[in-house]
Amino acid sequence: MSLELKHVSHIYQEGSAKESYALRDICLNVNEGEFLGIAGHTGSGKSTLIQHFNGLLKPTSGEVIVDGVNINGKEAKKELKVLRMQVGIVFQYPEYQLFEETVERDIAFGPRNLNLSDIEIQHRVTEAMDMLKLSKKMRKKSPFELSGGQKRKIAIAGVLAMKPKYLILDEPTAGLDPKGREEFLELIADLHQQGLTVVMVSHSMDDIARYAQRMIVLEHGEIRLEGTPQAVFAQSELLDQIGLGVPTLTRLLIELQKQGWDVRTDLFHPTDVSQEILRALSKREQRKGADLC
């Protein structure tokens, strides 16, 4: 079972003078249980791409297949709601979608649209709030009196309450302070641990490097690079050209290498990088010792 895009192209304002390709012949597989990172610049088509995952946008050509069902096909028409339930999308700045009087009711909006029983809805709200480590006291509060970070958590809880199999997040850390950013990334990694398939869109290579098992890089609506973060970050020159660059720690290694240090440049985890630097240091010490003898 997987989420599959087959030769998907999307053209905005087709047939007018402003016609422009937002996506061009995208082939992509999101496998169940993986953590996929999508990187790309503003305007590279990231957001357009994810809106195809649950049928909010229809491809101009190509197919989107969720668990074997073509979501723009005839048989999917009646089940679009069910399919949308499978693929939960959290948009950029999701806190703007809150509208209910209480946190509880807002999170329940999704499940209510699925016509579930009251008991099931309550159960799901509790579950979703637990997943995001939201305290029970918050249930009866108005979402509008909470802080920005909390609002965002509630918005995500609102999507999780629909029990999606795939969770798509568009720039989940945009506009958060460093602490909130850290907290959110941990949370997302946690959700992935719990068995959700996660797709995270970001223009921050650091964020993607941290948790993604596989990543794609979009530019002008086309997939430029695809593979493990390690393989992708090895192409630092191309990434610089696209304007995304590599994670800060990889950049550090590249700079060290330029200055004549013998280090690998395909690492990005803090522990890996520090070990690599220590290794290079001790190697140099050894050589110095040998020279002295």
């Binding site: 339930m85 809150l98 999704g110 649209n113």
Partner: peptide, 30 residues
């Protein structure tokens, strides 16, 4: 906002008039 609410299962074009008007609340408040 319409897209965000549609992603949560809201539909703006089905149901009778009363349901349609009700469906506007999640759109209009934000």
């Amino acid at each position: 906002i319409m897209k965000a609410q549609a992603a949560r299962g809201a539909s703006f074009d089905t149901g009778n008039l009363i349901e349609k008007v009700k469906a506007l609340v999640p759109l209009l408040v934000p």
